[in-house]
């Protein structure tokens, strides 16, 4: 099965790398998301230097902004420091969701039938879909992380940030990406038309994103939305990665929260893998 998986994943990645139209937009999306959302959503930029006739000094203004970031944005040194984890999750979600288009095309153009008449396991077809989307999306995640660091007023990593933080951050992203990829790959193998896939994906992704803390802190959510958000895997991945980015060294309570969130993501990934595999087997069975 591993040979089949690597052959199919290799094919997809080779196509991806050779197609600049598929790779470059990913780079610019990351840049635009960070630059646009990082500025337009930044609430600290709304604080006027003159409040009711009281002129704030630059130091006072900075202090107020810093205080807001610390209290509301989990101690992030800059707004982009807060936003980066959410933007990366957003990129992961959309790449996973629309990554299945290639599989629908493979079905429509007959390539999938060719695979189904080859002596390979159905699991390798499914997991190669999962793997190729994950590799593509995780590459973009890493690129976005680098762009965020290089941007002016960009991502400032917490003091004491080390290799373990990095592993934790990308581990959380990978678990989210894997879980989502399992679901969306199974969906892509089940539908016959790109239109259907796009419609379902649009229906599913926006609520997923906007009920999470990817772009906004949960503190501002009404209680019902907070309850939903707390069970959203995007929230778990975002919060875990954000915690590890913003705080280099974690306190014991932060570590405990992180452990629970990661455990949640592990269960999420495992359940999605099983559900997706069952759905994919059904979709690939002879009709």
């Amino acid at each position: 099965m591993f040979d089949d998986l690597s052959a199919l994943t290799g094919r997809a990645l080779r196509k991806w790398i050779r197609n600049p139209a598929a790779v470059l937009p990913g780079f610019f999306t990351a840049l635009f998301y960070l630059a646009l959302f990082g500025n337009s959503f930044n609430p600290t930029s709304l604080i006027p230097s003159n409040m009711g006739g009281f002129q704030l000094t630059p130091a006072e203004l900075l202090s107020i902004k810093s205080s807001i970031l610390t209290q509301t944005f989990q101690g992030a040194a800059t707004y982009i420091s807060y936003l980066t984890a959410g933007i990366i999750c957003l990129i992961l979600v959309f790449n996973m969701a629309f990554g299945g288009i290639d599989l629908v095309l493979d079905r429509q153009l007959g390539f999938l039938s060719t695979l189904l008449t080859a002596p390979i396991s159905r699991g390798s077809i499914y997991f190669s879909g999962v793997a190729q989307n994950m590799i593509k999306a995780m590459s973009l995640a890493f690129l976005t992380f680098l762009i965020a660091i290089l941007l002016p007023d960009g991502l400032i990593l917490g003091k004491g940030f080390g290799v373990l933080n990095f592993i934790g951050i990308f581990g959380a992203f990978a678990l989210l990406a894997f879980g989502l990829s399992c679901v969306f790959t199974a969906l892509a193998l089940s539908v016959r038309a790109i239109d259907s896939l796009v419609a379902i994906v649009n229906f599913a992704t926006f609520p997923l994103v906007f009920t999470s803390t990817a772009l906004f802190p949960g503190a501002g959510f009404p209680s019902w939305l907070l309850a939903i958000s707390n069970e959203n895997p995007i929230t778990k991945a975002t919060d875990s990665a954000r915690l590890l980015m913003v705080n280099g060294v974690l306190s014991s309570s932060q570590l405990s929260t992180l452990e629970w969130d990661i455990a949640y993501l592990v269960v999420f990934a495992a359940v999605m893998a099983i559900v997706g595999y069952i759905a994919a087997r059904k979709a690939l069975a002879p009709v």
Binding site: R11, R14, K15, L109, G110, F111, S113, T114, T117
Partner: peptide, 13 residues
């Protein structure tokens, strides 16, 4: 060996 009606060789390879 199956040679389907559709041309399924990968264009990008």
């Amino acid at each position: 060996g199956v040679v389907p009606q559709e041309l399924t060789a990968d264009d990008e390879l």
